[in-house]
Design a protein around this nucleic acid. Structure first.
Lengths: 245, 245
DNA sequence: GTGACGCTCTGATCCAGATCAAACGCCCTG
DNA sequence: CAGGGCGTTTGATCTGGATCAGAGCGTCAC
């Protein structure tokens, strides 16, 4: 962890951030969305831009929560594990998503990059100060938090009340819709996570995930493109199989 | 913080809401926690205090989200249902909890009182304006939202990865701890929800909930006080059975 | 007091998905 | 381009919790 941090510090120079902001693909979706030029300048002063390699940990449960992050490229997964190793993946984050706002000063989850990724990092204390001076940004963040709660509620329904097929259908549709909203490719749709990670997200086992995806493929609802992507062939049927609406 | 005497003097000159504020049992935990006298007065002007009877609906999924609410007395449950009637209860809310902050203008869940209850109601637009003028209150709300997300994450782990015994043990400990933090009686601990509602919270069936609670009772980990309350007899064992930490 | 309804409890059986086991395939690397 | 390892797939069997069925039991209306 310590060595990773210093590596990141090295990569994160001031000039990079400004240039990155201008080209930031996530600008449209993230917390910076509502910033005017002056605010942007101030926030910039608090930011470091970090690149993450595939499988890098952004933080782990138990770490002090010194920073908050804005994901700008790539995919990150949030998870929480029980002492005996059972793991629940809480979500797969896409560019624009905000990471690490904790109720207290300790991270309660693990955050791991599933692909190469980039984040903007802010010191919590400084970021809080910025929010205090920029209430509309605080409101924007509140809106984003409320979106996260909505997402969590959908996930709770999936985990508590859906069958295996419904879980997988819901997972695929949700990832597709969120990817689409971020202008990411959806046809085919990238699945950079392993079957095990899909299992830990859907509350199933690897075997059930594999069998269920094969079944959807056999029924010509989806097409599997290698193991790292899917093509949704029949939207309506997948929607109906998802159990929602 | 403004002095207590001036706050009281001010409130005494007001109507029912002001009186209620003075006696508000949830003041210590809710969003008003951080208000000074001036803020309190402004917020007061936006508030209506509503009593709820047992089983009253505060709102239903699909309703326009015109208001936000602060629960000050009693217990409310949030849930979401699938079209075929399967229901997932998302949480049991206690005094101090904030209700109804939605990502858009439509409620996505049902909110129903499990006991007689009281809420403070605010028009959303007016409340948003208040937040804009009072960034520290917005930050307080952000902190509360982040607590809700933490709670949701624990619930996702429960639903996705825990056994029936672990789910019930976790449910009881969580309710007890949250009740305790609100100075509510915990010994015995009130369970105003039905077995069916516990089932819909834990992702189990009524029968499994009943059997599992009976088993915990037979093992002398808990004592059932009628069907509407429990006494935790063996904290350590219940904690171990919960699968967490 | 008594009937009845709704919630809870208990027992018998069933099944979706877990577990156990064993290939398969596709990158890597040497 | 052979070998090894990891992720995935597939098959056989098992089981925790669901489902089905019915019996308590509290409480409320009359």
């Amino acid at each position: 962890m310590a060595s990773m941090t210093s590596l990141h510090a090295f990569c994160a120079s001031r000039g990079d951030v400004a240039k990155s902001c201008r080209n930031c693909g996530a600008r449209e979706f993230n917390v910076c969305q509502a910033l005017d030029a002056v605010q942007q300048e101030k926030l910039l002063a608090l930011a470091s831009r970090l690149p993450l390699a595939k499988r890098d940990r952004l933080f782990s449960a138990g770490d002090p929560a010194r920073y908050v992050y804005n994901l700008t490229e790539g995919m990150v997964c949030l998870s929480r594990s029980l002492p005996d190793g059972r793991r629940q993946i809480l979500g797969f984050l896409l560019p624009g998503d905000f990471i690490g706002f904790e109720a207290d000063d300790i991270h309660r989850r693990d955050a791991e990059a599933l692909t190469e990724a980039k984040v903007c990092r802010f010191e919590r204390a400084a970021f809080d100060g910025f929010l205090r001076d920029n209430p509309d940004v605080a409101l924007r963040l509140l809106q984003m938090a409320s979106g996260d709660l909505e997402q969590a509620a959908r996930h709770e329904v999936l985990l508590g009340r859906k069958t295996a097929v419904e879980r997988l259908a819901t997972f695929l549709l949700d990832l597709r819709d969120r990817s689409g909203a971020r202008h990411l490719r959806t046809h085919p749709l990238a699945l950079p996570m392993t079957r095990g990670e899909i299992a830990d997200y859907t509350g199933l086992t690897i075997e059930t995930v594999s069998r269920t995806l094969r079944r959807l493929k056999a029924d010509e609802v989806i097409e599997l493109v290698g193991t790292g992507a899917v093509r949704v062939l029949d939207d309506d049927r997948l929607e109906r199989l998802s159990g929602s609406t």
